[in-house]
């Protein structure tokens, strides 16, 4: 079984995250770069499956600038068997469609039985890449899983939202994305950290993916406007008196919170 986990590097959610107001891209320098927490849950699934099932290979795949090497190595420290990093000057500022195309090409290059991703990244929060990749590869996708079961032939899982729980299944090869309801990821242990440096790690450019990916023939998306985050406004204070219950309910209703 070959499981490829799509690893996205994001700015640490604990730190302040900034946009470059010239380009509209996330400012990579302003905050520490980490593996997206949701992806760690996906890795947790793949690695714990591999621990219980001999002959499983877990590959961490990322498309990112070269500096993301350290972040991808963390996936190896957690227990992935090898890493593949797609680095290319031409991919600077790649949007969702180009990202999906490159990832799909890389996945075909690597080969896979199951692809695992997070349901949406904590920075861009687009949540489209998994579906786009599945579409390009023409394989079924099970989105937003809170639990996953996998065997040689098929993958099943519970798609859980606030309103519904669906039991989904698909034959392999397939793509799944896990939600933040999926099990907590492990910490890379000390031995894992030391072993990570010795694991295979490939850096590929798009030319090496064997697909003709045209990058710059036309802009795929156009940014029309960008602005900094507005300063925080002071909140509404509901003072405790005989009306506070009603006031609170009205506030929640007005903001569509109930």
């Amino acid at each position: 079984m070959k499981i490829v986990v799509l690893v996205k590097e994001v700015p640490d959610t604990w730190g302040e995250r900034l946009l470059d107001l010239e380009t509209g891209l996330a400012d990579r320098v302003s905050s520490e770069r980490v593996i997206d927490e949701i992806v760690e849950r996906g890795l947790e699934f793949a690695i714990s499956f591999a621990e219980k099932n001999d002959g499983t290979e877990v590959i961490a795949l990322s498309m990112a600038p070269e500096e993301a090497t350290g972040t991808l190595r963390k996936a190896l420290a957690m227990g992935a068997d090898r890493g593949v990093l797609i680095v290319d000057e031409a991919l600077h500022g790649a949007d969702i469609t180009l990202t999906a195309q490159v990832l799909a090409a890389a996945l075909e290059h690597i080969g896979f039985d199951l692809i695992v991703s997070g349901d949406q990244s904590t920075d861009g929060a687009g949540g489209v890449v998994p579906s786009a990749v599945a579409e390009l590869l023409d394989i079924p996708q099970l989105p937003r899983l809170a639990t996953v079961d996998l065997n040689e032939k098929e993958v099943t899982g519970a798609h859980v939202t606030d309103r519904i729980t669906l039991s989904l299944s698909a034959p392999l090869p397939a793509m799944i994305s896990v939600s933040e309801r999926f099990a907590e990821p492990r910490f890379p242990n000390f031995k894992g950290i030391m072993a990570a440096k010795k694991k295979p790690f490939e850096v590929l450019g798009i030319a090496e993916l064997g697909k003709n990916i045209s990058v710059l023939d036309r802009p795929r998306s156009i940014m029309t406007e960008i602005a900094g985050k507005p300063p925080r406004e002071s909140g509404v204070k509901v003072t405790a008196d005989e009306n506070s219950g009603r006031d609170l309910a009205e506030f929640l209703k007005k903001n569509q919170l109930i």
């Binding site: 420290a77 910490f187 890379p188 000390f190 950290i193 030391m194 440096k197």
Partner: peptide, 21 residues
């Protein structure tokens, strides 16, 4: 022995573990 490069990561991992767990 543990290389300094690995040790920096071990220490960072431990710090995170202590803070979060």
């Amino acid at each position: 022995s543990v290389s300094q490069e690995d040790f920096v990561e071990i220490l960072g991992g431990l710090r995170q573990f202590i803070r979060e767990k």
